[in-house]
């Protein structure tokens, strides 16, 4: 497998603070890596090192096959960066920003204008193209910022908390764009504090806390690795709840949790085969269920298990 991004043993100190404490990362070409971690975990520092904006004190990193220190200019030629704070000029209009970037990338004036118009249309910003960025809403800014990152058709795209502070609608738009880019073969490194975002988008997740990688894997692997499964049953008739509880207790030797509000019973299990046993037992006693599932723990539970603290409080927009 070829890797668009590889890093090993990245260490970065700011005074006495250890922002990166030996971080390893690997993103296969054409995949999305979600770098998940709370505020101050070192996510942004890692992105800045990989974007050649910061030099690591120790370790090495290669992007698109180029060393971020020795071949920094070549790395800059293959990456696109969308920062945590909009990396576009507030005073300039959408068109002016994108044309400037096109020109800096060596496009002729006409080509830069055409590319700007194309991207602004793609991100539904054509109507606002001639307005200053400072008049844009948060979602529009993010889209303009993303458009700016794509002027040079990058092979590797860094998205540093691309949806922080966005409303659900804008967030979904950003997600859609990211998926479309990956379909075109772009490799994406995405940092996020939102487990849901990582779960939705990422092929691979790396969890960082206090500058260290504490887990890496597919969302599915992480969920499996860090917590048992749970068996959830919702009997069609509420009167059957005690009977179902009895069966579950019998099968697992554990007292099931009953959610009285929606009539769901759940119990932790370690043997997935119990599901079919349960189905048979329910059949035998003639109880039907509206919902019957074996669930992996949510990423929130994974995060809690891995970091020892709960995931950051979701802002209203993502709750």
């Amino acid at each position: 497998m070829s890797y668009a991004i590889e890093a090993e043993g990245l260490v970065k100190r700011f005074g006495s603070t250890l922002a990166l404490d030996g971080v390893d990362l690997a993103v296969p070409t054409g995949k999305i890596l979600g770098v998940l971690g709370p505020n101050g975990a070192g996510k942004t520092t890692a992105v800045r090192v990989l974007a050649t904006l910061l030099r690591a004190d120790e370790g090495w990193a290669r992007v698109g096959g180029y060393d971020v220190v020795k071949d920094a200019t070549a790395v800059r030629g293959v990456i696109g960066l969308t920062g945590q704070y909009a990396s576009i000029d507030e005073d300039l209009s959408g068109t002016e920003n994108l044309v400037l970037i096109g020109k800096l990338l060596g496009l002729s004036k006409a080509a830069a204008k055409a590319r700007a118009a194309e991207l602004l249309a793609k991100f539904e910003l054509s109507d606002a193209a001639s307005r200053s960025i400072k008049t844009y809403s948060g979602g529009m800014r993010r889209r303009a910022d993303l458009a700016a990152s794509l002027v040079g058709r990058p092979d590797v795209l860094y998205l540093d908390e691309p949806t922080t502070g966005l409303d659900p609608h804008s967030r979904n738009e950003v997600w859609g764009t990211v998926r479309a880019l990956v379909d075109d073969g772009v490799t994406v490194l995405l940092t996020t504090q939102y487990l849901e975002e990582a779960d939705q988008l990422a092929d691979l997740i790396t969890v960082i806390d206090h500058g260290k990688v504490i887990a890496t894997g597919t969302p599915h692997e992480l969920k499996r690795r860090t917590g048992g499964q749970s068996l959830q049953v919702r009997p069609t008739l509420a009167v059957d709840v005690p009977a179902v509880a009895g069966i579950l207790r019998d099968l697992t030797d554990t007292e099931p949790l009953v959610d009285a509000d929606n009539g769901v019973l759940s119990v932790p299990v370690d043997n997935p085969l119990l599901l079919s046993t349960l189905v048979r037992r329910l059949d035998e006693v003639g109880i039907t269920a509206d919902e019957l599932a074996l669930r992996l723990p949510s990423l929130d539970e994974v995060f809690l298990t891995l970091t020892g603290h709960t995931a950051p409080v979701h802002e209203g927009s993502l709750a």
Binding site: A51, T52, L81, G83, S87, D89, E90, I101
Partner: peptide, 17 residues
């Protein structure tokens, strides 16, 4: 100190530009 400078610096342009 503005974000846009990060973009310039992450692009393949001259450092002095």
């Amino acid at each position: 100190t503005k974000g846009v400078f990060d973009r310039f610096r992450s692009m393949p342009i001259a450092r002095s530009a």
